[in-house]
Design a protein around this nucleic acid. Sequence first.
DNA 1: AAGTCACTCAACCGCAGGACG
DNA 2: GCGTCCTGCGGTTGAGTGACT
Length: 323
Amino acid sequence: MGRPPCCDKSNVKKGLWTAEEDAKILAYVAIHGVGNWSLIPKKAGLNRCGKSCRLRWTNYLRPDLKHDSFSPQEEELIIHCHRIIGSRWSSIAQKLPGRTDNDVKNHWNTKLKKRLMKMGIDPVTHKPVSQVLSEFRNISGGHGNSSETFVRNFKTEPSNNSILTQSNSAWEMIRNTTGHHHESYYNSPMIFTNPTSSPFHFSNDSVHLLNGTTSSCSSSSSSASITQPNQDPQAPVPTFCWSDYLLSDPVIPQTQGVGSSATSSITFTHNENFNSQTDSNSQKTASNSSGTCHSTSSFVDEILDKDQEMLSQFPQLLTDFDY
DNA sequence: AAGTCACTCAACCGCAGGACG
DNA sequence: GCGTCCTGCGGTTGAGTGACT
């Protein structure tokens, strides 16, 4: 027996709110404050579900909300946070005063995701589509010979791609077109940027996104080495060869012919946000990772070890996003 | 001018987790 | 420990609107 509905749905109004209804909510909250939303409709004289009232208040009527368009800085922050924590809209919204999770989610789905796709960046992984497809080719046997064509279409006319229109990311496209669900790979924290591994990021800079220019990624090269424009050329660039882990993971089938164009030797650059607070530590960690790339350990074990290492060195990661 | 399409965003839905008796 | 209620969250839907043919 399932949970009963929160209200009698046949007798409550649905759909857009009128100014009069808004005024009733505002008047009630001004006097009594928020809380116990299930009782508010009755007390405020509204024929609405309490849940609907709460949503109207939190997403629209709250006095601290901004109703203007997103600034470039806010967009940059959304992209950055999404790269780190994914679609945890409430957590991202907390970083944006005056914005709700619904605002952020809608803005991502309608604007930012499309902008990334148009630039050839997969909005799920935040990596160049060419690289995502190349990596997939590596683990699926190397017969994805149409990936370059796909990447061209992805970058130039994403809206004309029926598959993309529905699935919106290279990874989802791969899943849809092949029926293969490489779950261990798909869920890998190295691919889906996990905060515990976040010192190793592609620097598909938000600056480029906001300026409307294309990123430095190449649609033809599967060996991505992306560096930050302001990075000191003298400074050593820590690298992290996660593909080594992939090839050593027993879950993922090994393939022949992963050399030349199919080899994914990806250079991860240092995340600027970690530089400011934990520069020496993260440099050390990154350097340790870059120099070794041991293929003798399993991918999962290495990730877990790295998580532990990161958590011990960057405890603020736990607090930043409410883990 | 009328019809169609694409896009935006407010609102809804179902689920999960916490609080409480 | 269990059931109920409330709240919060993320995914999805659909009405409204502007652009295009």
